[in-house]
Amino acid sequence: MKPTATTTSEALDPETGEDPAPVAAPAPNPPAPPAPAPVSNGDAAAFATSLARAEAAELATIGAQAARLGVSIDVAEAVQKGIKPDALRASVLNQLAARGDAAAITVVPPPKSAAPESPLLAAVKRAASAAKPS
Rank of each mutant, 00 (worst) to 15 (best):
I105D: 07
G63N: 01
A56T: 10
I73T: 10
A45Q: 11
G82M: 03
A57P: 15
R99L: 04
A78H: 04
L88N: 03
V71L: 05
Q80K: 10
Q80I: 13
A45K: 09
A78D: 04
K125A: 04
S91F: 06
R68D: 12
V92H: 05
L121I: 13
A90S: 01
P116C: 01
Q95T: 09
A104D: 02
Q65E: 10
I105W: 15
A57N: 15
A60N: 13
K84I: 09
A103H: 12
A130V: 09
A56K: 09
V108I: 07
P111F: 12
R126A: 07
G82R: 05
A127F: 13
A131P: 09
S129Q: 15
I83Q: 07
V124G: 01
A45T: 13
K112T: 06
I62C: 05
A48W: 12
A90H: 05
A123C: 07
S72Q: 05
A128N: 08
L69R: 14
V71N: 03
G70C: 00
S50Y: 11
K132D: 00
K112I: 03
A90C: 03
G70S: 02
P109V: 09
L93P: 15
Q95N: 04
N94S: 01
I105Q: 12
A60W: 09
E55N: 12
S72R: 00
T61Q: 15
A130I: 11
I73N: 01
F47R: 15
I62W: 06
T106W: 12
A103D: 12
G82Q: 06
S91N: 08
E77G: 09
P109N: 14
P116A: 00
E77S: 11
I83P: 02
S113P: 08
A122K: 09
K125C: 02
A56P: 09
A57F: 13
P111G: 01
S118F: 14
I83T: 10
A87D: 01
S113A: 05
A66Q: 06
A114K: 14
A52M: 09
P116W: 06
A127S: 13
A56Q: 07
K81F: 13
L120C: 01
